[in-house]
Structures are given as C-alpha cells and as structure tokens.
C-alpha cells in the first residue's frame, strides 16, 4: 500500500510529467490561458491516461511478450490510444452532452499528447504491476492537471502584468514554468 502511495505522489509531484519529464508541453502552453479550459483539458488527459494504462498493460504482458514481439510496442500503443480516444469521445457524446461540450474539443488533441503515450511507456519500462501502473497513470494525470491549473491561474494574472516587451506572452510563460519547476523540486524530499 505504501508503495502505491509513493508511486502516486512520485508521479504527480516529484517526476511531474510536464515540469520534469517535459511531456505534454503543447497543451501546457496552449490550453493554459484560461482556468476553465485548463481544468477540462487536465481531466480529459487524466481520463485517457488511466484508460490507456488499463488497456495497454495487458496487451504488452499477455500479447506482445509471450509472442516475442515487444518491438511492436510503439505501433500498437499509439493505435490503441487513437482508438480509445475515438471511443471515449463517442461514448461521452451519447451519454453526457454537458460533459461533451466541456471536454469535446480537447479529446481529439489527446491522441498526439506525448504525456499519454509516455505514461504507457513508463509503466512498461519501470516494470510496474497492473495495479501499480493504474496508480502511476492516476498520479501522472493528477500532476498534469495540477500544474495546468496552477499555470492557468498565473497566466490569467500575467496578462495584466507588465514584463519587458520582448518577454511578453510565450517567453514569460517559459520563465514562469521554470519558477514552477523550482518549486516542485522541493517535493523531492517526500520520497526520500
């Protein structure tokens, strides 16, 4: 149990997808201008990460490994993620229109979100068990959502700030990300 907790917080805070692993930078800078869209994007990514981990882990260990075709991993995983995103999109559209209106436009973007493919690779490379990989996906998604929300909060205020002209917009967003990363560095102590 303590192992699972360590994995969750390790993934969410210490080895944060965005700030440490540099995965999912496109939505991090692209969708972090407004708090509401950041939250929707974060939840959509969290959802796809967990579902993708649940599906790809058994595929790798019960299909690719027994037949000695581990080298097909990249092709199979990306196809699985692309199909999953389609299925999730259709399901949400049919069952919950409010949710679809909130998440709808972000879902197709997630197929090419490296954080999702990244977490499925991490699950395999770290030799996580099935429950561990689900917790890792939950942690990674939670960490992603957290920094996206923090970042959008900062950026909403940043719009009113007055940095040197050359830094306005994207450059100052990168500097902000750096400071955020420094803060997250302090979380390193909790898994010691």
């Amino acid at each position: 149990m303590s192992n699972l907790i360590a994995i969750f917080f390790g993934m969410a805070l210490v080895n944060n997808m965005v700030l440490v692993k540099f995965l999912g930078l496109c939505p991090f800078f692209g969708v972090s201008k407004k708090l509401k869209s950041a939250l929707s994007m974060g939840i959509a990514v969290l959802l796809v990460m967990v579902v993708a981990s649940v599906v790809t882990w058994p595929i790798f260990h019960f299909l690719l490994v027994p037949y000695n075709v581990e080298f097909m991993r990249t092709v199979i995983f990306i196809l699985v993620i692309a199909s999953l995103v389609q299925i999730i999109e259709m399901t949400i559209k049919r069952t919950n229109l409010t949710l679809y209106n909130a998440l709808g436009i972000y879902l197709p973007l997630i197929t090419t979100n490296c954080a999702v493919l990244g977490i499925t690779f991490i699950n395999i490379d770290q030799a996580y068990t099935f429950p561990e990989s689900i917790i890792a996906a939950l942690g990674a998604g939670a960490g992603f959502t957290l920094v996206l929300i923090i970042m959008s909060g900062i950026r909403e205020r940043l719009d009113m700030a007055d940095p040197p002209l050359a830094f306005k917009g994207t450059p100052i967003a990168f500097i902000t990300a750096m400071l955020l990363g420094l803060c997250f560095l302090a979380f390193g102590g909790i898994i010691g």
Partner: peptide
C-alpha cells in the same frame, strides 16, 4: 536494482 529519484 533500486528505485531512485527518476526511476530504477
């Protein structure tokens, strides 16, 4: 093998 800061 032991898990460190960034992985195994």
């Amino acid at each position: 093998e032991k898990s460190g800061y960034g992985g195994a």
